[in-house]
């Protein structure tokens, strides 16, 4: 923690302001795109891509993930694997072609 000198922190502050501006722009882009009335596939894709970009900016710079130690990356990688599992396995159940008769 004490490896950060005041000059380094000032550089970080510049980054924080830049990221803030980017997040504001992306927020308005998100809303603007929603008025375009794209097909459902593209609507979801664009919305999630923009949200992921915003989330990555928050995680990388506000949460300092971009300069974090390996241990944290591994914890998060594991989380991502489980999250993908969590998202897609339940959806696969609704595409199960087996019809259960009562």
């Amino acid at each position: 923690m004490s490896s950060h000198s005041p000059e380094e922190i000032k550089k970080h502050v510049k980054i924080y302001i830049t990221v803030f501006a980017a997040l504001m722009v992306l927020t308005f882009v998100t809303v603007a795109v929603s008025y375009l009335h794209l097909s459902i596939f593209y609507t979801v894709l664009v919305a999630l891509v923009i949200a992921t970009v915003k989330g990555s900016l928050v995680a990388s710079y506000f949460m300092h993930l971009i300069s974090e130690k390996k241990m944290i990356y591994w914890a998060l990688l594991l989380t991502v694997v489980f999250f993908i599992f969590l998202m897609f396995v339940p959806i696969l159940t609704s595409s199960d072609p087996i019809i259960y008769r009562n």
């Binding site: 998100t30 809303v31 923009i50 949200a51 989330g55 928050v58 995680a59």
Partner: peptide, 13 residues
Amino acid sequence: LVWIFLFPVLYLL
């Protein structure tokens, strides 16, 4: 971060 995802999913999609 949660809100950044919650907002488009609930309000815009």
